[in-house]
């Protein structure tokens, strides 16, 4: 019994210690931002590997999700004779929820795991330590550009996801199922609000971007420098950042749309 209690205590302490390290790292990453802004090339390289390489999966999944929303929404709405509000349903679902959340989950799987693996391997092969010995701060040189790239890429990817999804819904609803084209767009524009819906969706995606990138970078930087440690850290990144995204989404949704 006492052993169990001690184990629980030790685990709790470990969790707090890790949280503390994560916050300290976050602080140093933020401190490094000015020096990265002075060297946009570093950022460009990371925007490529974090953002551009995630583009394909985002576009394809966005289109499919939009098509499914079009199909399901049509089948549901036509029973109430309101198939003309299909556009509203597709757009609101995407802009408020699916866009930011699904993008963040895909982003965690695609870019987050890659970030953790890359940083973890750089640590395991002493590249980070080597930089330190060359008097180059690895946080500024390696971590901050990656963080900024994730921070910038996520909202753009989420916007692309939503836009492509709306097209997908249009393709199925208007193109295949015969919803009136004018009604699709007009009702959508009538009901979707720039601030309440689009803007809040962008805020969500920014928050998710910070959370996922931060978790991915911390797990990589904190990984046990062996191949086993790196692979475990990569798994943790996907699990933790997915949970963080879903949890944060609930909180943000409650704050943004709760008292509407």
């Amino acid at each position: 019994m006492l052993d169990r209690l001690q184990q629980l205590g030790a685990t709790t302490l470990q969790v707090f210690e890790r949280l503390g390290r994560a916050h300290i790292l976050f602080y140093y990453i933020l401190v490094g931002i000015p020096s990265v802004i002075l060297r946009p090339r570093l950022l460009a390289a990371q925007l490529f590997s974090v953002g551009v390489l995630s583009l394909l999966i985002i576009v394809v999944s966005g289109f499919f999700v939009g098509m499914v929303l079009g199909l399901q929404g049509y089948n549901l709405l036509k029973d109430y004779g309101t198939a003309s509000s299909l556009g509203i349903m597709v757009a609101l679902t995407l802009v408020r929820e699916m866009g930011p959340v699904v993008t963040a989950l895909l982003f965690a799987g695609r870019a987050g795991s890659a970030l953790t693996a890359e940083i973890g391997l750089m640590k395991a092969t002493e590249q980070l330590s080597g930089m330190e010995m060359m008097a180059v701060d690895p946080i500024k040189r390696v971590l901050t550009p990656r963080f900024l790239a994730g921070f910038i890429s996520m909202p753009l990817l989420a916007a692309i996801f939503s836009a492509v999804g709306v097209m997908g819904g249009y393709f199925v609803g208007v193109g295949l199922l015969g919803v009136d084209e004018g009604a699709y767009w007009a009702n959508m524009q009538y009901r979707v609000d720039l601030y309440d819906d689009v803007f809040n969706g962008v805020i969500k995606s920014v928050v998710f971007g910070i959370a996922v990138t931060w978790i991915a970078i911390f797990e990589g930087y904190d990984a046990t420098p062996t191949s086993e440690g790196v692979s475990r850290a990569t798994t943790r990144t996907v699990v933790h950042s997915s949970l963080a995204v879903l949890g944060l989404n609930f909180i943000l949704t409650a704050l943004m749309f709760g008292d509407n």
């Binding site: 551009v52 836009a163 689009v198």
Partner: peptide, 19 residues
């Protein structure tokens, strides 16, 4: 291209999807 596509998508959400 990525940045342009992202901004274009944001504009589309602002102009075409919302009011």
């Amino acid at each position: 291209l990525f940045a342009a596509a992202g901004l274009a998508a944001l504009f589309m959400l602002a102009l075409q999807v919302s009011n």
